[in-house]
Design a binder for these strands. Structure first.
Lengths: 146, 146
DNA sequence: CAACAAATTGGAATGATTCTAAGGTGCAAA
DNA sequence: TTTGCACCTTAGAATCATTCCAATTTGTTG
């Protein structure tokens, strides 16, 4: 039985998906993934680095970038970009949009009914075949929400 | 009567909107705007620079960035970002989405019925007040389209 | 255990953009 | 019309996120 403290956070997902791609489960990858699952505030690579360092003081920023890229490749995490700001990372795999609060800089997940994504794709003229749609709202969130 | 060669391209828009913001009409700003209107392929700042230089050999890249920023501020042009790539510029002011062709890297405008934008905003939970929605499709355009 | 592939690391390199300081430019008031 | 002044442009330096690189470490497999 595994003894890693945070194992409960990713019961089978991480090791499984990594193995599926022929990749190894490393302490760095586990920890980076844990950090994303634990505080789902769309952190940047730098922020992930800061949260990870106390646990694994020897980790390098390059490794954090590598791990994040790996997690994205394995479909465990999504990279989110907002107007040339640093890339943010999101472990929410459901199809959803993002709301960028102009006042606080915070990013919120917005769940949308799948039918809406379908309707959008249906609007594409013939000849356009989309395999992904990204939707980003920009504005102000009146109260402090999650 | 004005004698500027490209004046037909921006009959009143540019000078007017600049004046509205208390800004001057300069040869650099006119030319950058002309370039955007003439070839609407969502060029980057570097590409705009390349197209502008033959007309105005002394222009600097910094100025191109400045002009583009000014045009965006005046609501004459929209800045478009796609996953940390360089910012692209688009003089299409109608509300529309973008389709990013993964094969060619080209960006296409996709006009969407305004009601769809409204429907999207209607999905936002209470407390979220969006003043803009950005929609980006990613995929392949089967044939070569505009 | 030996050999080899996969991962990590620190630092250098890159690319887009912004900043800075130093001239130009042109309207406006005297 | 001169002079003042705010606006603009310019070249180059600086910045920031990210990627690349070469060397080392780690883990797995024969």
């Amino acid at each position: 039985m595994p003894t890693h403290a945070n194992n409960a956070l990713h019961p089978t997902g991480l090791a499984q998906k990594l193995a599926d791609s022929g990749l190894r489960t490393t302490p760095q990858r586990e920890l980076v993934y844990d950090v994303l699952l634990t505080k789902r505030d769309h952190p940047t690579a730098d922020e992930v680095f800061a949260r990870v360092k106390p646990e694994l003081p020897g980790i390098s920023l390059a490794t954090v970038y590598n791990c994040l890229e790996t997690l994205v490749q394995c479909d465990l995490v999504r990279a989110v970009n907002f107007e040339r700001g640093p890339t943010r990372y999101c472990p929410n795999l459901r199809p959803h949009a993002h709301f960028h609060d102009e006042a606080t800089g915070q990013t919120h997940d917005i769940d949308l009914p799948p039918v809406l994504f379908a309707k959008l794709k249906a609007e594409l003229p013939a000849g356009f075949d989309a395999n992904a749609v990204e939707i980003t709202f920009r504005g102000k969130a009146k109260t402090s929400l999650d």
